[in-house]
Design a protein around this nucleic acid. Structure first.
Lengths: 338, 338
DNA sequence: ATGAAAGCGCTAACAA
DNA sequence: TTGTTAGCGCTTTCAT
């Protein structure tokens, strides 16, 4: 029962008959240590089972070697995959990732930017949902920060996104190419203050206009929440009372999955009666029935670029905010194949 | 450009004209402080924008207020949901959770138990996949640890699980009640050394025997990996060459989803030709077509019990390992409704 | 109720 | 190449 962290650097030093500095040199792989000394120290380390106390090291160096990844939900397919990529990218440079779940709670989002990260992490990658960008500028002080997702970022803050307008236009154009003419948008979310939705809606509208098609506002469905069930309810309501549509551009794959279920219930066939396109290209997209066409952000690239920007900030870079756009594609599957 | 953590306790003390101790008392909500003093200190804190340095606090107190949750994959639906529950439960007691992804890598799993956690977290909740239980006993030293999942835990280590034998028997019995008689098991995974699979297989077999049905080893499918695609391939192969089956008990929902796709491809109807039951009752289960019957571990309870055990260990409890079994149920949906 | 000072375990100048 | 020592910012006895 040695007790966690019981063996200290000084214990090893005594045991090996050298100074703390020498032990520290060995532990940190400093080159200029006599082989004999190194061996003796290493033996003492092994014998005593020494592990450096990371907290103490942090206090001394001012570095934690950790970054925080803050996002709305850890169990959302997209965010889960993104987290995996960020963790992998960060690991290549020796960083660990703390995942912080905000659950779309504004207080939690503020906390991300304030005291909670004080000295805990060296930087933060943050996908906000509720917090306004001006608040971000005001709150984030000097904590290195990179924003994810399409926010109206203040100029002092880096951020990484895909071109949501273009991507929405791309997927809508794909639907048009399949012969769809009454394309709906699912959907605007009540209470969602991010510009993500409006950007996607804009791209969808641009593609329609470009094709010479009318914009029917009744084909833009409003959804009461962020779950598949909320989306299904919206589609059910639209079927009951709304105008006919022969395709739906969905805000994300979870909405698309809800749409598939609602259409099936109503006896509509996908893609023949209604083509369905999702967004995120999450792992589940290829296993729905029919398999889901989906906008595919390059998640790995998103993670890599965000981390690289953050590393620069953590290294002290002080310039204005950089805005990086990462490429996307449309993964075409059966749900839109006519 | 105040610099992160630039304002220190001593700065606040000076500004307010009191000692560090008094500021510390205010920051930590110590009761015996004169209201006037408290107000003055609080004003200084607000004015200077002071945030306590958590690393320094940790070094002084020896507590980090964080626990690690180590599991194979963060983007697996089950683990994502579990992580969410653990984070929620931990937050109620002021703990934060670091999520550690092992990707089923043995070295990563060893690291979880060793130096990586030195001083980083107060305890670890760990779902191992590759590491043998004896190694766990040898490596974990004095780090408070709770194991998740059905491992042959050494007596010194706490662990929490559901009764996999019983759950497999339950879902198999449900299938029998639906009139299925040629029930298969999908599947044994090559290279999986955990006992999870064998426990589930055992429950499946027990239920068949209890019903007086023969055990046909050819109905136990072997899968080459952990993805839906691997499962789909196994089902395809079984359809091509294996014996007929009218139901499949699947190792998890991802396997079940792969089975649905493979059966559809082959022109088999679910549930009429083949009933499908998954495992984990993840969010996607209700959105597949047909909706998936699935074994439902009580994930919240799993998280709660694991965290409670861990809290006791972090408080210094030294007894032998406790083994806790959490309740499960079977969420019945269309994929088994005949 | 508040202050003074000794650590917590490590790193990093600065010396030797 | 190795040793000495002064911090890192906080908590926490022990005084007052």
């Amino acid at each position: 029962m040695a007790g966690k962290g019981r063996v200290r650097l000084v214990d090893v030093a005594e045991h090996a008959g050298v100074s703390m500095k020498t032990v520290s040199n060995v532990v940190n792989g400093y080159a200029h240590v006599q082989p004999a000394t190194r061996a003796r120290v290493q033996a003492a380390i092994d014998e005593l089972g020494y592990r450096p106390n990371l907290t103490a090291r942090r206090l001394a160096t001012g570095r934690t070697g950790m970054i925080a990844l803050a996002m709305p939900e850890i169990d959302h397919p997209y965010f889960g995959e993104l987290a995996r990529h960020v963790a992998e990218v960060a690991a290549t440079q020796g960083y660990r990732v703390i995942i912080e779940q905000t659950l779309g709670d504004e207080a939690a989002e503020r906390a991300v930017l304030r005291d909670r990260e004080a000295g805990l992490v060296d930087g933060v990658i943050f996908q906000p949902m509720r917090i306004a960008t001006l608040d971000i500028a005001r709150l984030h002080r000097d904590l290195p920060l990179v924003l994810l997702g399409e926010v109206e970022a203040p100029v002092t803050t880096d951020h990484v996104m895909i071109d949501n307008v273009q991507a929405a236009a791309d997927v809508t154009a794909h639907l048009l190419a399949q012969g769809c003419t009454r394309i709906g948008f699912l959907g605007m979310v009540e209470g969602d203050i991010t510009v993500t939705n409006s950007r996607r809606l804009l791209g969808y509208q641009e593609a329609l206009v470009r094709a010479g098609l009318p914009l029917d506002p009744r084909r833009v469905l409003t959804v009461g929440g962020f779950t598949s069930g909320d989306a299904a309810a919206a589609v059910r309501a639209a079927i009951a009372e709304g105008p006919a549509f022969d395709a739906l551009v969905c805000r994300d794959d979870r909405f698309a999955v809800g749409a598939l279920a609602a259409l099936r219930e109503a006896g509509r066939t996908v893609p023949d009666d209604v083509a369905i396109a999702g967004w995120d290209d999450s792992a589940l997209a290829q296993w729905t029935w029919p398999a889901l066409t989906s906008v595919a952000p390059d998640k790995h690239e998103l993670a890599r670029v965000a981390f690289d920007l953050l590393v620069e900030r953590m290294g002290g870079a002080q310039g204005v905010g950089r805005h990086r756009v990462v490429r996307h594609s449309v993964s075409v599957r059966a749900s839109t194949a006519r």
